[in-house]
């Protein structure tokens, strides 16, 4: 295969990687905040948060992407995303962050609630503050428990980044399809290799991380 094709595909895949990294960067902390919201003792907050999570998880990511890209322009005078490439990428990032933060929040919630209440109580009777109990006692146990479901979700995220082409982000599959239009099918198949390599690397990373946490059992 032509070197130009490979470099075009790599260029596209760089966008996938960028979207992937930014989504993780923002969706992980946001997901943690949302999980606290859905576990809030204040009924109103828990109710609102759970409704939001239901709506976001209930809509296809593809539809969410289109809503976030087009809806502001339909409501307001002009689209906040502008007509530039960077605007389309920002819209995609926001859609991905919102979507994945909601999925992550449920994983966090499950992880936090699976830790026996005795751990919190043991911290309390030792005079620890709520935040000390969370960061020094609970968090590490939660991380250990959520590595497997998280790795699933993160791998899905890698592949979902291809949806960004729906609002004309030039990600790898969009690049490959240009060749399909010209009668070349091989670039489309070879784009799969990029994903296989990337996810292979991630899988090794998760395995390493799980082994790192093997020193204790919960």
């Amino acid at each position: 295969m032509d070197l130009i094709i490979v470099s075009r595909l790599a260029e596209g895949f760089f966008l996938n990687c960028k979207l992937f990294a930014l989504t993780l960067l923002f969706a992980l902390p946001l997901g943690l905040i949302i999980s606290f919201g859905s576990m809030s003792k204040v009924k109103g907050i828990a109710y609102i948060t759970k409704t939001i999570v239901w709506v976001i998880r209930g809509l296809p990511l593809l539809l969410l992407l289109l809503i976030i890209y087009y809806a502001p322009g339909l409501i307001g005078e002009s689209s906040p995303w502008g007509t530039r490439v960077s605007g389309r990428f920002t819209a995609a990032t926001i859609a991905f962050v919102i979507n994945y933060a909601c999925y992550f929040s449920e994983i966090f919630r499950g992880g936090i609630q699976s830790i026996p209440v005795g751990q919190t109580e043991a911290g309390q009777v030792l005079g620890m503050t709520k935040s000390q109990i969370f960061f020094k006692v609970i968090l590490m146990q939660v991380i250990k428990r959520i590595v497997p479901p998280m790795s699933n979700e993160i791998i899905t995220l890698v592949k979902d980044t291809t949806l960004a082409r729906l609002i004309a982000n030039k990600e790898i599959l969009m690049m490959a399809q240009e060749y399909v239009a010209r009668g070349l099918i091989v670039p489309l198949f070879s784009s799969g290799l990029f994903f296989l390599a990337f996810i292979g690397g991630l899988t090794l990373l998760f395995g390493w991380f799980e082994r790192k946490l093997d020193y204790f059992r919960v």
Binding site: A122, G127, Q141, R217
Partner: peptide, 21 residues
């Protein structure tokens, strides 16, 4: 209350040790 708890020590039926330490 957090400070007052320190007057008391508590040993639980289920130990409740912190597994990561």
């Amino acid at each position: 209350i957090r400070k007052k708890r320190l007057h008391f020590g508590m040993v639980f039926q289920a130990f409740n040790l912190f597994p990561q330490y």
